[in-house]
Design a protein around this nucleic acid. Structure first.
Length: 263
DNA sequence: CAGATCACCTGCTTGC
DNA sequence: TGCAAGCAGGTGATCT
């Protein structure tokens, strides 16, 4: 589910409930979501205060009075500020006021505690909403790879996933197979603008809910109704009317308009 | 460095 | 109806 806009929406809805709260007790139940010693992890976070909640790329970072708790939602992870633990609840936090649940049917998400910045977060490229156009252009010029897999690469740029890459490339009129280093400066700028636009519009709509995604209060987003190519295979392109095509790029379903998007 | 393939999981949809 | 295959918003390891 979750790409930058969904994670940002979770962070924003989570903040008022957890900022300044103390973790009284924690439990972890999945050897996938929390690899390693789960009881040790529970002991490490118990008694700690949550000072701030922020985001880098798709990571939710809860800064504690000592250390940081990093949460990645994977494909189906949910952080919820209310509800009952169920079969897919793999993390449970009892706070001094309220609770925090981590649900994740597919268990591709991760919860990890670290004294400093977690290595997975340190390895990320600049956040897609924080990078400047100049920096984005400089990085893009250096890479001789297809633009779609490059934009999915979190070490290159952090935050985009399959939906927003397809949507940004459509808005910029760029084919997913276009070679990054060969894009004209003008097209790179237009791609930068398209990325910022689509991410901001989606955050404004509370993210995209295809099937699982909900924010920390359990509310679905609405941006799926504004997708122009993602999930619209065979439908008419909103710009030219040609049928939207779906192909595989880097093993990911890729939606684009063969008439509007050029290599 | 770039790309392909596979793997990690569950659950829903599709097609026979 | 039943069952297998295919698909899903993500990432990382390994091999060419």
């Amino acid at each position: 589910m979750p790409e930058l806009p969904e994670v940002q929406t979770v962070v924003e809805t989570l903040r008022p409930y957890v900022t300044g709260r103390r973790i009284v007790r924690a439990e972890f139940h999945s050897r996938f979501v929390t690899p390693g010693d789960r009881d040790a992890l529970a002991s490490q976070v118990a008694g700690r205060w949550i000072q701030t909640v922020r985001r880098h790329g798709k990571f939710i970072l809860m800064e504690l009075d000592r250390g940081v708790l990093a949460v990645h939602l994977g494909m189906t992870g949910q952080l919820l500020v209310s509800g009952q633990p169920g079969t897919h609840t793999h993390g449970f936090f009892e706070l001094d006021q309220g609770v925090l649940l981590y649900d994740d049917p597919r268990q591709f998400g991760r919860i990890e505690f670290s004294e400093t910045t977690p290595s997975r977060v340190a390895a990320l490229g600049p956040d897609a909403l924080a990078i400047t156009c100049t920096d984005f252009a400089a990085r893009t010029r250096k890479r001789h790879s297809r633009i779609k897999p490059l934009l999915l690469n979190q070490r290159f740029l952090a935050g985009l996933g399959n939906i927003y890459v397809d949507e940004a490339l459509f808005r910029a009129g760029i084919h997913p197979f276009a070679i990054a280093s060969r894009l004209t400066a003008r097209r790179v700028t237009s791609l930068f603008d398209a990325i910022g636009e689509v991410l901001r519009e989606s955050i404004e709509a509370g993210g995209s809910s295809i099937s699982d995604y909900v924010d920390a209060e359990g509310q679905r987003g609405a941006f799926q109704d504004s997708h122009r190519v993602y999930g619209r295979e065979g439908e008419a392109c909103v710009m030219c009317g040609a049928p939207v095509k779906r192909i595989l790029v880097a093993q990911r379903g890729t939606h684009f308009c063969p008439r509007c998007q050029k290599k």
